[in-house]
Design a protein around this nucleic acid. Structure first.
Lengths: 236, 236
DNA sequence: TATCGCCCATTGTGATCACAAAAATGGCAC
DNA sequence: GTGCCATTTTTGTGATCACAATGGGCGATA
């Protein structure tokens, strides 16, 4: 069973209304967002193969928009195309992990500091609400909820920096370690971690640049250290 | 006149032998590299519209591989798709310029330092040869030759770092200011600039990490400052 | 002459088909 | 039972067609 009846060509409207309520989006844009969300929240396993026709059938569209969405994710290094033209969720390696850690520490604290003077009380309380939900997800043992909350916490802040170009770089970096957060947080509890998010929120309220920068840096080092130790083994 | 005779379907071999001698490459990969090279070397003007069918006819292939190549370049922010679905070479803005400068200074010196212990005498002399050619291009008033040489100088070094993930980020950054180097270097002579490449090469030979890091940083600041002042006007 | 509205060309999007290569499968010999 | 080769299936790639929307150009009207 393909989608619909086949042979009768579907009306090729550029608006995709089948999956999400958002109108005005192209099909491949919707597909892209779905795949991206799944990667960021741990919906794929590292090493898992991704086939165009497979995703196409799963989402009920033709392989064409899948091709474009996957091609885009490959460009962002969220997916990897092997020499045999097979598309897979790339595995983590120690060198790659080291580079990701460096890039995060080099870019994200700056984004946070750029956002700081542009924060409003409303945005800060929104971030606080996200952090509360994150805490509940941890307590409930819900790794995907935790990952989504963590992502939203950081990017709700970073988006306020109005620095699209840097945000794009950081998004690409996050897409590359998404599947490994899942591996790390899926198997162990996370309640024993010190919460630098609280420190960061306090710094936002106080408008303290130095403390915010340090809190984000600490959060990155702690989170990535935890992921690295769990997935790749203790640092040598 | 389309490509070949049309109506007679072309044999859809995944190997593209029409444009470059490199075999084993898909058509969209070849197209991607061509477009990318043109962007990096100033073959496009900022604001210039890029149409799928236009490029397709120009290169003598169907619009399909163009779609994938353009989609990839959009993901790397080398091209921009407007709301009207028109694809253009994105213009430069002061905020974007500031972000690019920050990202370059945050990432490229590190790549150079990572490459340093992995450099061989052969690689260094290759980089020296590139720098010589670059000097000749400047003397000959050949902006595209200068841009290509400058690109090769930096990336021949960076590639030795064996840090693919960081290299990908930096590549994306370069793709975003490529068209503006052209605007800057196309209209004014570049002979009055101090040559930090020489300093960098000396540091490579001496294995001096600190000097190399500083030389790359200086080169970035000088080059970007020149581009910024020329294209965007003096800094306010 | 200036401006508004209509028509047509252009362009991106999605679907479908054809093809080649790689992977998976099955059968046959030993 | 095991290993190897031929066949089948799966998968990415490229081409072509159909469609909707945007944009430009032309003519009519005030």
């Amino acid at each position: 069973m393909k989608q619909l009846e086949a042979s009768a060509r579907k009306p090729q409207v550029p608006v995709f209304a089948g999956l999400s309520g958002e109108l005005g989006l192209t099909t491949h844009e919707t597909v892209y967002r779905q795949l991206r969300d799944r990667i960021l929240c741990g919906g794929f396993q590292p090493g898992e193969a991704v086939t165009l026709r497979g995703i196409a059938e799963e989402l009920g569209v033709s392989p064409m928009p899948i091709r474009e969405a996957v091609r885009r994710l490959i460009a962002e290094r969220a997916l990897d195309m092997r020499d045999n033209r097979r598309v897979v969720v790339p595995p983590m390696t120690r060198p790659k992990f080291t580079q990701i850690l460096f890039a995060r520490k080099a870019l994200e604290p700056e984004l946070a500091v750029l956002a700081l003077p542009r924060l409003t009380a409303k945005i800060i309380s929104k971030i606080e609400a996200i952090d509360d939900g994150l805490g509940r997800a941890v307590a409930a043992g819900d790794p995907q909820g935790y990952m989504r909350g963590n992502y939203l916490f950081h990017f709700t802040l970073y988006e306020r920096a109005a620095a699209d170009m840097l945000l794009g770089l950081v998004s690409s970096v996050w897409l590359q370690f998404g599947p490994f957060m899942r591996m790390a947080y899926g198997r162990v509890g996370t309640t024993d971690l010190e919460d630098f998010h609280e420190v960061a929120i306090a710094a936002m309220k106080a408008g303290n640049e130095r403390v915010l920068r340090q809190a984000i840096t600490d959060d990155i080092e702690q989170g990535m250290g935890y992921i690295g130790d769990t997935v790749l083994g203790k640092r040598q």
